[in-house]
Design a protein around this nucleic acid. Sequence first.
DNA 1: ATCATTTTGTAACAATTGATACAATTTACG
DNA 2: CGTAAATTGTATCAATTGTTACAAAATGAT
Lengths: 225, 225
Amino acid sequence: MIDYSLLSLCPVFRGIPEHETRQLLNEIHFQLKNYEKDEVVVLAGEEVKHLLIVLDGTVRGEMIDYSGKTVKIEDIEAPKPLAAAFLFGKENRFPVTVSANTKAKILAIPVPEFLKILQLNTRVLRNYLNSISSRAQFLSQKLNFLSFKTIREKVAHFLLQRAGDRFHSFELNSTQQQLADLFGVTRPSLARVLGEMQTEGLISIEKKTVTLLDKNALNQLLKNG
Amino acid sequence: MIDYSLLSLCPVFRGIPEHETRQLLNEIHFQLKNYEKDEVVVLAGEEVKHLLIVLDGTVRGEMIDYSGKTVKIEDIEAPKPLAAAFLFGKENRFPVTVSANTKAKILAIPVPEFLKILQLNTRVLRNYLNSISSRAQFLSQKLNFLSFKTIREKVAHFLLQRAGDRFHSFELNSTQQQLADLFGVTRPSLARVLGEMQTEGLISIEKKTVTLLDKNALNQLLKNG
DNA sequence: ATCATTTTGTAACAATTGATACAATTTACG
DNA sequence: CGTAAATTGTATCAATTGTTACAAAATGAT
């Protein structure tokens, strides 16, 4: 019924031998649900009572705006979990409405049963902790980055991080456009700031090599932000 | 040696009877470390190998900027954990250097031992999962909020969220200044946008009562952002 | 009710960034 | 090497927001 070799590709069960996964699932209650194309899997706002893992087919998450219309779409394929980050915490409700893109099979493990698994198997526990921790760290970094308001600050932060403690120059392996997208600004605006920083003697750019000429001044830019 | 009643006030051991906590700690290896005032507890960049819980005194986390100077300070008091969010995940290194503000006593539980506790006690597991999940959810919300670039978008999002699906008006219990701080903008800029929205017939403000006159238009603002 | 304090509305100007366009330079590839 | 494509530098103008200042309105305390 369940393709256990597929499950071991899922972030939660990664690195766990097939027979061990089979054994784990034997110890607990779970449900296998089949959905037809375009059938609704969960509604936004519904309480998250199960860990849902897509075993077959793909599903889509649709944001509903405040007037009730569909906005954004994100696809989730097998064998990915559906709401792994919302199983616990204060607001454990689905942020999106999920519908099946195709015929889909979904494994639903009730939260208390999943807790049992976490306590039975150290590897699953580590996998799960790692995945939500990584997510929190990723969000934290991104948030920290967004806290810099001006382009100058973002660039200074980026340059200093890339150079690290020891070095004063490094190779830039992305284009200005990619950088601009990362910063959420337009390409000409980024180029303007880079140009200004060069004329001010803060940095120098030679082809793809960036050299930091005045690290203290760059740091100063961050403090006064 | 350890004040177990204090430990039960710590987020990780919340709601666990004193004798149970004592029993749990008996099952594992841990260390109790004493620090003198201004002694360094951990260095930024060091790998996180233990869950650290402040049992006595207070410590401070100091960000080190790229030139090696101290920047920001955050105080952590007993009985709070030190790096609970960085025990797992890809980048499990301390983001800050931590020093003792006063004489301090710190409980250090090695990560593998903490994993044991998580598997022994469901309540501790739930506590810990809830705390890092809540953190991720909080960050996610904040990030989502910051994704709105213009003040109009931020205001529209805020208004629609506050009103919810059903209502068209609500009481504002904060001042414009507080709202402006929340949005990360200046007070006059916020007032300007609120004024514009009123003349455009999107909202009306009467004292502290905000009424949404055109929810569809407000939603439209978010989509085209 | 009156007065001091806080909050809000508004205006003028500066600073920053976005949008668009185009030339100069670099890169990739035959 | 030479040419097409991609990337970068730069300019101009519009839009948004910040800064500063001050008056109007609301609030709170006496």
